[in-house]
Design a protein around this nucleic acid. Structure first.
Lengths: 206, 206
DNA sequence: ACCTGAACACCGTTCAAGT
DNA sequence: ACCTGAACACCGTTCAAGT
């Protein structure tokens, strides 16, 4: 068969297959993706830059759920808040992909473009350049940590008979609690950002 | 040679070798650890429950740097703050281990014991059982995210010519910024916790 | 350009054999 | 109990061969 008249593979289907594997079993391998698409493992390498490239396709798919239009709203703090909520919802839809995406450098151009826009928002609001990344990474920690907590609240703890209090605290966790923690964390973050910005003029340079 | 009169291996040395590999190259494999100890790969399985067991040894080593005594101080919010600072310092010493430990369930008894103590502190301060885990995981997100940011500030971003603002924001990041973000994040967290607790009696049951 | 099929170095885990 | 040495199934990546 060799080269088919119409390609068997494309980046869309590769990303979708990898994300589905992640959703089902919490991980994926390149051969598994190939198998799911009825193709040889090596064939993927004609479309994607190895496993890291597949991860970036997954990131693009998950992040496609984020409404980037929120970043164009005014005022700046309302835009940031709406973006954070949309960001969290997108990741909460694929909780088992979060660990993979949290520990992998962001290369996907579509995602970088959205962060570029977020940087522009903060600079336009009057923040200084050194203030921007701490704000964005702080917001990201809040969003991703909380999305993981929302969808997999006890994934990180294996209590034992020696830790009865911890076991009780885990059992007492209600689904609304992660929600509440996010709300207050977000409010605290926004209050901090407003305070940090002080009386800067919107669009000002210094 | 088969069984030596005095064992060649012990859990201490396995954990130390794995942590050193993580510090040097950001990852480790079981065969690499065996090689570093001059031993066959299979030998490790007599001392440790597979790769996951080695990860838990690494966690114990890193967490050994946390001063658990802080949790016995009074008042409760001062204890929590001191614990968070010690926690962050311990992880900042091994930044390349953080991604591995952040995405892996906690099984190490010594670490679980410390969390058991933290749960006891919060319950003793008057928090209700459902409030405890959201507080602890929120604090953990703050601490680990900030430790990672402190030690590897640009590890998560690969800016391109299409993202000049992002590149500028990354370049403008000073080392003191992660510190400042942690300080304010911690202050916001503690203020939230005090507010959530309200006027509960220390040691009260609710 | 795109797929196959085979290869390569590596991984995590198991286990009989030896002392 | 503890180490060796070999095995197994699996992984990520490369590449000549075919169309």
């Amino acid at each position: 068969m060799a080269r088919p008249r119409t390609p068997l593979l494309d980046r869309e289907r590769i990303g979708a297959a990898a994300l589905q594997l992640l959703a089902e079993q919490g991980e994926f391998s390149v051969p598994q993706v190939a198998r799911a698409l009825g193709v040889q493992t090596g064939s993927l390498y004609h479309h994607v830059d190895g496993r890291a490239g597949v991860i970036e396709l997954v990131r693009e798919r998950v992040c496609a759920g984020i409404d980037g239009g929120t970043l164009a709203a005014e005022p700046w703090d309302g835009a940031l808040e709406a973006w954070a909520r949309s960001y969290r919802a997108a990741f909460a839809a694929y909780p088992r992909a979060i660990p993979l995406l949290m520990t992998t450098p962001v290369r996907a151009p579509a995602v970088l473009a959205q962060y570029e826009q977020a940087v522009a928002l903060l600079l336009g609001a009057g923040f200084r350049a050194e203030q921007v990344m701490p704000l964005l990474t702080g917001l990201e920690n809040l969003v991703l940590g909380s999305a993981l907590d929302l969808a997999a609240p006890d994934a990180m703890w294996e209590p034992t008979p020696q830790t009865p209090l911890l076991a009780g605290a885990l059992a007492a966790q209600g689904p609304g609690r992660a929600e509440a923690a996010f709300e207050v964390g977000l409010a605290a973050f926004l209050a901090y950002a407003r305070d940090l910005r002080g009386g800067a003029e919107p669009g000002g340079e210094g």
